[in-house]
Design a protein around this nucleic acid. Structure first.
Lengths: 349, 349
DNA sequence: GTGAAAGCGCTAACAT
DNA sequence: ATGTTAGCGCTTTCAC
């Protein structure tokens, strides 16, 4: 058939109304599923819609409703290079990001709302986001921040616009968020190491300024303390393979006969595994290793990583639900949902 | 200060005009950077804009301009579970996805256009996308398809709307796309293996229905043939760790003394490495392994993976540029940009 | 160079 | 239950 020649502008409500022999308002009602429409008329309109291939214009609709059916999925991080550089960051390469996207999408897609990907790495970008939000360009914001001192959570809270976070904000802010019980997860890791009779346990810690990293260490230390190992030597590193490698190397230098390792992330655990192997230590024979996350790298490790599972997809889905609820009723108070971690036993401990 | 009490509706052009003592049209001109405005007036308007905190309403603007400043970043894949299930797929977990996002974002952000994430896994979802596109809800589409028989490329091409793809479409379609020279990359891999004096080389192939996988195999076979090894035993698997493991196991069963492996992706190479280690083969001593992609897993492998680098971020950036160009001038003919792969030597070969 | 006025396509009172 | 009407906030001729 084809769309016919020329510019072929899309049919409007007006045209459909003409074809169906009714008013614009009636077509609008049918399209929006308003009940009080005569079945006969409704059918006629539906036919006209089908015949004309009518599709509502979102811009026009949101101009009047003030809703867009779009939320902002915001990734906030401090700008790496002081000079504005084009390629975006490391964050997107982290398997975490994909899992969050998948979880959010799963919840959003059925409701026909789509996330607008927004990268914020500077004050102007922050202002633009706030502007878009204030002006109704997106209905709300789901924030993933990898920056402990990020001012964005508070700014969002202050703006009063619907906003939720993945992970507790670095600085307290009146925002809903989802998170995992980090301490509890760390306790599971400690219990596993203890059950394996490890006596000289160390920790490969994440950046101390990240709440998640701190919580994991606190929980781990507390649990080890309760079991008799009052001091847990630790080395800090970035949440990355290299970070894990280096921290592990430092630990090994000080305590050559260590026999248990808790790493604050799977990526770090993978790095630790590599360093251990390089130094001739057998895992789990000589030393047991427990990670955190249960990310995709866990099964790629040799041996496969025993780790603490974080239900990222479910958490992201819940974050989406919290946001949607907040959009429907903006006066709802902030709410946080904390998920339970679980021990996943594989080969490394 | 605060925004004041109550609903606090955003200021409109009208209000700014009143404050500046000019007409809406003039404010509009200033806001849109039209040259022909008296410097004095312009300054007054700019002050008024700043004072009122005016931000243009996108919906209103795009209602009249027909532009949204938004593109669709579409991930298309066949629905995994026949029954509509909530959580989205595997695709997002692949490091590839994040790299594409980073590349696209890097190009788009400076131009203040943001990608709307759209997941398409069914005919209705496809229809909705086409509808949104036709009606101008997004200015164009960047498509990442992981489905050889995907009808979407052709539908997009037929719709006439601006659309570009990452990777050549599975079935020919009049669409711009970016890709890497798969065959050339495979030749690089072959050359490396040959240079290392491998005599019994095998291939861990990706799904034969994917053009990329096929191209890589074709290129590899051709290059090996030119060097004297006329037949290259191969085993097919999914583009995943498990796929690589299994394919490698099958190969090893048939040819226990193989001494060179070309894997069609880094993830598969990682799997192959695991299987080789399990069978007691030393890499690169007993057998040399070359991967493809240079993804983040390459450096996590033991030994680190020698691989063929695919400049994914740059490719994604170019895809974004192609799309933007096409949006600016819809009559441009489709164009493809093929990137050069490069050999990255690490420990595995 | 600037303003007046006409819509873009839609929804939501209000009237009928 | 349906139609009429008045905008939502903006850009864009068209006069001046």
């Amino acid at each position: 058939m084809g769309t016919g020649p020329g510019p072929a502008r899309r049919p409007t409500l007006e045209q459909v109304a003409k074809v169906a022999g009714v008013s614009r308002a009636t077509v609008s009602r049918v399209v929006n599923g308003v009940e009080s429409v005569d079945p006969g008329i409704r059918e006629a309109v539906e036919r006209a819609v089908a015949d004309t291939g009518y599709v509502p214009n979102r811009a026009a609709r949101s101009l009047v409703t003030g809703r867009t059916g779009t939320i902002g999925l915001v990734v906030s991080e401090p700008r790496a290079e002081p000079a504005g550089g084009p390629p975006a960051s490391q964050v997107y390469a982290d398997p975490f990001f994909g899992r969050i996207v998948a979880g959010v999408l799963g919840e959003l897609a059925p409701r026909r709302v789509h996330p607008l990907l927004i990268h914020v790495d500077s004050a102007p970008a922050r202002d633009e986001l706030l502007a878009r939000l204030g002006q109704g360009d997106v209905d709300g914001v789901a924030l993933v921040s990898v920056w402990p001192d990020d001012p964005l959570p508070r700014l969002l809270a202050a703006s009063g616009a619907p906003a939720v976070m993945f992970t507790r904000p670095g600085q307290p802010a009146a925002l809903s968020y989802v998170d995992v019980a980090h301490q509890q997860g760390a306790e599971l890791a400690a219990a596993r190491l203890i059950a394996r009779d490890c006596r000289r346990v160390v920790a490969v810690a994440g950046p101390a300024d990240l709440p998640a990293a701190r919580d994991r260490m606190d929980g781990f230390r507390a649990a080890m303390g309760r079991s008799g190992q009052l001091s847990v030597p630790s080395a800090e590193g970035a949440f990355s393979l290299a970070g894990g490698q280096q921290a592990m190397a430092r630990l090994l230098a000080g305590i050559p006969d260590l026999d248990g390792v808790f790493a604050a992330s799977d990526l770090m655990a993978q790095g630790a595994l590599i360093t251990l192997a390089d130094h001739g230590h057998l895992v789990p024979g000589d030393v047991a290793v427990v990670g955190f996350d249960d990310s995709s790298v866990a099964i790629a490790c040799r041996p496969p990583l025993t780790t603490i599972r974080q239900p990222v997809e479910e958490m992201a889905a819940e974050m989406a639900r919290l946001l949607l609820a907040r959009i429907d009723d903006p006066d709802q108070p902030p709410r946080s949902v904390i998920f339970e971690p679980a021990l996943v036993v594989r080969g490394s401990a």
